[in-house]
Amino acid sequence: MRSAEPGRNAGSRGEIMEQNNLSRTGLAPTRGERKAIANLEIVPRRHLGRWVTAAVIAVLLALVIKAFAEGDIAWGVVAEFFAAPAILFGLVNTVVMTICAMSLGIALGVVFAVMYMSPNPVIRVVAWGYIWLFRGTPLILQLLLWFNLALVFPTLGIPGLIEVRTVEFMTPFVATLLGLGLNQGAYTAEVMRSGILSVDSGQTEAAKSIGMTRLLTLRRIVLPQAMRVIIPPVGNEVISMVKLTSIASVIQYAEILRNAQTIYYANARVIELLIVAAGWYLIVVTLLQIGQYQLERSFAKGQTHRGNHKPGRAVENA
């Protein structure tokens, strides 16, 4: 290989590059040869390894499907119970609980995120303590605590004004809502906080400069822009919540899994009913994923350049 002579090659990067492999004789290809090379057909590389891997995976998958098809599963029973009233009732309860617990969680998340960023140290410590407590203990334990609250406080309310017996108030629904909602709030608070911090401080200053109060600034300017950062993780948490509601089966909340269990205790078709429940969870989660995608798109507005932007077009006006 001849080394590149700087004087001769000045202004011609191509000549330096081509010395790597194109010249058979050790000399650079001539202008004609380069033209010929430029006309050759391009053959994409065949990724043989990937095809082999894919084939192996396909075979394994076929074996798994075959095993389930031949296994002792009465698919007729799955079909029979898929839309059974008890299952559909459980489905409604699962969806209702997901919506209620998530709403409570998001509301608490916003409140505690704002408290966490307060200039007042007492408020900050309270927010920190809430997040610490509810993130630091298992969810199932929190549910059991709420459900058994009557053991600590036989009655709830303001003495002499409103009082209810805890056992009557703390139904499986209320206990599940408090357990899931308060737990979710602790996680969502962290998500909200990072979302709020992601909004440039110039936005807050601009809002102040037109006379907006802190609350109005948060609601109109900061939160809508924080949504872009908040929606993806919260979307994931909604999906987790759908599945977390199944934990409430331990305190007799009649969601899908609980109702599927009630049925299989009676007919002993355990796997079939678990498949029914799994199918419904997958359907709900798939729908939510589609919704999440749409929501992310709508909150991304103003964040991307669109077609007709011509920078500096208005210079003539100056």
């Binding site: 110039g202 936005q203 200053e205 400069s209 809508p224």
Partner: peptide
């Protein structure tokens, strides 16, 4: 906030509401 309404501010980095 009430007093700030009486002055307008134009910032170096524009600070338009992005959304």
């Amino acid at each position: 906030a009430g007093q700030r309404m009486k002055t307008g501010t134009v910032f170096q980095r524009f600070n338009l509401f992005q959304h």
